[in-house]
Design a protein around this nucleic acid. Structure first.
Lengths: 329, 329
DNA sequence: TAACTTGTGACTACCGGTTACCATAAAGGT
DNA sequence: ACCTTTATGGTAACCGGTAGTCACAAGTTA
């Protein structure tokens, strides 16, 4: 096997006819350097196709310029857009991004945290839906959470879930719905998501209607989810409006509704939640509450950088949502 | 500011009352060790919440257990599923995954390659749609490509694009379409995608029909794409069947068709391409050619690992596609 | 002419592990 | 009683850069 030796700083120095120190100075733009020397060094680097070993530098500097994203999965319109936006911003700031798809499995999330922390990441953005992960308490590494409460000291970026809930339910009420049902994650997952349900219940109570919520786990198959929705239509044939906790579920509900001969928006009105890119493209007919994903990404990156730079009083933020009016409600 | 000192191997050794060597032996499971010592060391590590500095180990071992994924963006049903599947497999094998969203911008792709290679990744999986990136020729690092020709020495995992093209067009012909149009990326992007177009043209010619292809760039906005499709309906009002190069475009075409009063599947039949998870959930009505994304991920990971382990004759593979019959054709 | 500024080299400690080598010692086998 | 296996310690080189210190030379300025 042809063993191709890695080029190191020393090799560049030799070829350029300068000292190791000088090459390092060129690389880091330190000290006094003549243009001539800089050129010589660059030429040598090009000729050898030299790539500085970032690992060695990381070890010395105690900084990796690596951040990790821990979310349930990237195979979901909301997380895909969010992670893409986060990555774009981190890239501009010189950070590389490690992916951590926890599959919404607490053990996996715990493992990921350990592994990613071992990789000496400079910070983490997390948005998994698990609880009680002790790793979060043990570390002092900078962490920002998105749409999820993780711990007292960890700032959260979320959209205005309560307002989103109000907008959605009010829209259904305005459209004349009498029997509105809400779907949401199981509530034991402490997330700002809960506030959507709170808004739903508050508004329903205000209008003297009985709030009914169906729980649907995030991490089960579409078939499983459809089963829940079928049960919903069977148990509540009177339903004429649904406030779904995300657009995927809204889409599944509309499909299941058809099985029960409910046609949107005549016999049934549906409002979704998230309003991600992909959903807007593939299901433009869906009326939904749009989370400001790009802004959330911007804010999360901003907060994480503050933490990385040693700021201590980093505060959680809530960003406004907006309604996208379309034809399903 | 409270400076929290990082715990190192030496600290663990001191607390456990053993030597640095022994701790390292416990960590790496090397040499002779008594159960008693192992326990002592583990206890000390737990007490101190010690995390071995992976960077230091990487530097010595010349192995990072890091791989990078370079794709246009993760905010797309096909790439989201593909990257999720890749990440899942790499995770199981002990590799962490770096995200590189090139935005389909050659300069950005080149930058990413440099950066990721600097990070000493053990390998890369690439699927961007750019050409002529010199970085690919310069490096000897293991690379596997997905659905894209990169260079002679770089193995490609692709699905059977020619067969996919045949299936799609044959379906439209069987449904009685007389005027079938194909949409695809600009052909100067050398990708196996081309074979879909080839199949389309071969089949059209065989049936003595004139093949017509509209080019749509991957990286433009939905609005831009819709403009192209509007032009298509204007220039070819006779069109009654469309073979789209991906499901997103199929979805946009159906929407634009409505503007021209073309209703699917009565006045117009559409077959898409990709059949990713998210698309199946959000647009189940779409008839499409499904790429075997999980299998492609499995194969790509397998090939990359062979390269990482020094195998030299790693061959490209093509995997079968299947048709998903639904209501748009 | 003394005092800086600029430009470069040589040397070394350091980042935090890994591992080879050698030494030592107790336990077990023959 | 001798040899081997098991178990542990100490030391040092090494991975590939970074950066501080000191030295020295040439050019510039007061």
């Amino acid at each position: 096997m042809v063993e191709k030796k890695t080029i190191k700083l020393d090799d560049v120095a030799k070829l350029a006819g300068v000292s190791k120190t000088t090459v390092s100075r060129v690389l880091n733009n330190r000290g006094y350097l003549s243009d001539k020397t800089i050129k010589k060094v660059h030429d040598a680097m090009d000729e050898l196709n030299y790539r500085p070993n970032v690992i060695a530098r990381q070890l010395f500097k105690q900084k990796t310029n690596l951040v990790a994203l821990v979310f349930p999965t990237v195979d979901n319109p909301f997380f895909a857009e969010l992670e893409a936006e986060l990555e774009k911003r981190f890239d501009q700031l010189g950070y590389r991004v490690l992916m951590g798809n926890s599959q919404n499995n607490p053990a996996k999330e715990q493992d990921y945290l350990k592994l990613l922390l071992n990789h000496q990441v400079d910070g983490l953005i997390v948005g998994s839906h698990n609880q009680g992960i002790s790793e979060y308490q043990k570390t002092t590494r900078p962490i920002v959470s998105i749409e999820r409460f993780v711990g007292k000291q960890i700032p959260v970026v979320s959209s205005d879930n309560y307002q989103g809930g109000l907008l959605a339910v009010q829209r259904l009420l305005n459209d004349g719905c009498k029997h509105i049902i809400h779907t949401n994650y199981p509530i034991n997952l402490v997330s700002p998501n809960e506030l959507r349900q709170q808004a739903y219940e508050d508004l329903m109570n205000k209008h003297h209607r009985k709030p009914i919520t169906y729980s649907v786990s995030f991490d089960v198959s579409d078939e499983e989810k459809e089963r829940v929705f079928r049960k919903m239509f069977q148990e509540h044939p009177e339903v004429d409006g649904i406030f779904a906790d995300n657009d995927t579920n809204a889409s599944l509900i509309i499909r299941v509704g058809k099985e029960f001969n409910r046609h949107v928006p005549d016999d049934l009105k549906v409002v979704g939640y998230d309003g991600a890119n992909i959903t807007r493209t593939l299901s433009p007919e869906l009326t939904t509450i749009q989370q400001p994903i790009p802004e959330m990404a911007t804010k999360a990156v901003e907060l994480l950088l503050q933490l990385i730079n040693g700021k201590t009083d980093v505060k959680s933020v809530t960003l406004p949502v907006r309604m996208i009016n379309s034809t399903t409600a």
